[in-house]
Amino acid sequence: MTMFLLVPGFWIDPSVWDEVAAALRARGHDATAVELGHAPTDTAESHVDDVLAALGTADGPVVLAGHSGAGPVCAAAAERARDRVAHLVFVDTGPLPDGVAQVDFLPPEGQRWVRDAIAAHGSGQPMPTRAEFDELGTSTEGFSDAAFAAVRARSRVEPAGAVLTGARRGTPDPTLPKTVVACSFAPEQVRALIDAGVPGFAEMGGPEWTTVALPTGHWPMVSEPAALAELLASLA
């Protein structure tokens, strides 16, 4: 039996992992979705603390899977609690360099859009509409209108500090296996960015890294939960 800790990305609550967790449990594993804080004062660093708290209660080393905005958070947590992590998985995401915020990784027009949305709200960024995600270039493929509406209805405002600040990185351990699940981008694109030395991708060229394709939209736990569970179980 393997323990999986499943960390949701921006806006979404742990229930988005329900189908994946159920499929992992049906295979005899243990699976728990992690709750990240959504108080106005929360930051990328406080989200790292949330993951560290979950790791501290886990029974032995885990497969730690972070989706989207949780990817860099999980990378930082794994570096601070290396003995608690057996495999690090990035679901349609990757690590970011020390202190680099999610917003900094967007193209200039995307950065302006996000900062304007935070300014309009006051303390954070509400989950964009489907049309806004399309405009931002975030794939919602495989997400039915009803499923998207249900997830967005449960969404929380992402605290400004989680969007506009980065996590403190440690030293990546080359003995820790790391897997990127590429959903809305192709493994070939990752390889090209690694070779180009793009920040956030340059460190992914080591032998401990693998990239596997799961072609779908940015939320595979909704659009392809069975396939994602099967892929995660293969890492156990």
Score class of each variant (00 low, 15 high):
P40I: 03
T41M: 05
T43P: 15
A44L: 10
V48D: 05
D50K: 15
A53Q: 15
L55I: 12
L55G: 00
G60A: 03
V62K: 03
V62A: 09
L64W: 03
L64V: 10
L64A: 00
L64C: 00
A65Q: 08
H67C: 00
H67Q: 08
V73G: 02
C74S: 12
A75T: 12
A75M: 06
A76G: 15
R82M: 12
R82W: 05
R84K: 10
V85P: 06
L88R: 09
F90D: 00
F90G: 04
V91M: 01
G94Y: 09
G99L: 14
V100G: 00
Q102S: 14
D104V: 08
L106N: 09
P107T: 04
G110Q: 10
Q111R: 14
W113C: 07
V114H: 05
R115Y: 13
R115I: 06
A117P: 00
A120E: 12
A120C: 11
H121E: 11
S123H: 08
T129H: 08
T129K: 04
T129C: 07
R130H: 14
R130K: 15
E132K: 07
D134W: 08
E135P: 00
E135R: 14
G137F: 04
T140S: 08
T140D: 11
T140H: 12
T140K: 15
